[in-house]
């Protein structure tokens, strides 16, 4: 079989699977169920093999046993026997199914939890430290030469650096809107005491509106992502497969 035929068969199977899975949009049928099970089986089987070939073999097995050089007699990488200890520790996780010995499964779980907990302090700071820092925005303009940041394309670097060092009115207003959004959204999560007074209640309500606008934007981005996936599938059928078919049928 030549490459064109293999390509055509491969893509045709892909097209059948795509149509089979999209048939659920009409109604759930046996065709959909069939392709769903094929997909799950393939994914699980592929993952099982890939975990061995891509991870366990290269990162555990070959490190444990080492590797020979090209001459087949001298060791290129010495074996590290300590890697063998990982196997019984990993297998202990399966004792979760044993009523009598399920305490053993807590050992690997404890190791994972300990590693996770140990990372959390610096992870917290690495996540939120720069974000807290970025929230501290200047609100007072440092120059009144122009209200907006001047057009800098083609400017001398020193002159552009001088402009960037200043806060213009438009930037100060942007920063103020940012701070207002941040504080009002933040106030929405103050549950420890009752908010009283028109100002605080209004500020809180404004935070809720900002949050809802944010959720709407997030939802819009998600919808766009879903459309992109549908467009790609249709492109697979109407462009990629169509091209392979025209090559195959000459």
């Amino acid at each position: 079989m030549n490459l064109v035929t293999i390509d055509f068969i491969k893509l045709t199977l892909g097209v059948l699977a795509t149509i089979g899975l999209y048939s659920v949009l009409y109604q759930e049928t046996k065709i959909y169920r069939f392709f769903e099970h094929v997909f799950l089986g393939l994914a699980a089987g592929y993952a099982l093999v890939a975990v061995w070939t891509e991870t366990l073999y290269v990162n555990w097995w070959s490190r444990m046993f080492g590797s020979f050089a090209e001459d087949g007699t001298t060791m290129a990488e010495p074996g590290r026997w300590a890697y063998a200890i990982l196997l019984p520790i990993g297998l202990m996780a399966y004792f979760v199914f044993s009523k009598k010995n399920n305490w053993m499964s807590r050992i690997p779980i404890g190791i994972i939890l300990g590693m996770w907990a140990g990372q959390q302090v610096f992870i917290w700071w690495n996540t939120y430290g720069p974000q807290i820092n970025a929230t501290m925005q200047p609100l007072v303009p440092t120059t009144w030469d122009t209200w907006f940041v001047p057009y800098m394309v083609g400017m001398e670097p020193a002159q552009a650096a001088e402009i960037r060092a200043n806060i213009h009115l438009s930037q100060a207003i942007t920063n103020f809107i940012f701070l207002l959004t941040f504080l009002s959204a933040f106030s929405y999560f103050l549950f420890s005491f009752e908010l009283k007074g028109k100002f605080m209640l209004g500020f809180n309500r404004m935070g809720r509106w900002f949050l809802m606008i944010g959720f709407g934007a997030i939802f819009g981005s998600t919808v766009m992502a879903r459309f992109a996936l549908a467009i790609d599938r249709l492109s697979f059928i109407f462009v990629e497969w169509a091209q392979a078919a025209s090559r195959f049928f000459g």
């Binding site: 720069p130 820092n133 992502a225």
Partner: peptide, 16 residues
């Protein structure tokens, strides 16, 4: 992807 975009924008705004 568009789904992860909003999270990524927070990291972008903070310079991460």
């Amino acid at each position: 992807t568009g789904v992860i975009g909003p999270t990524a924008l927070t990291f972008y705004q903070s310079g991460q």
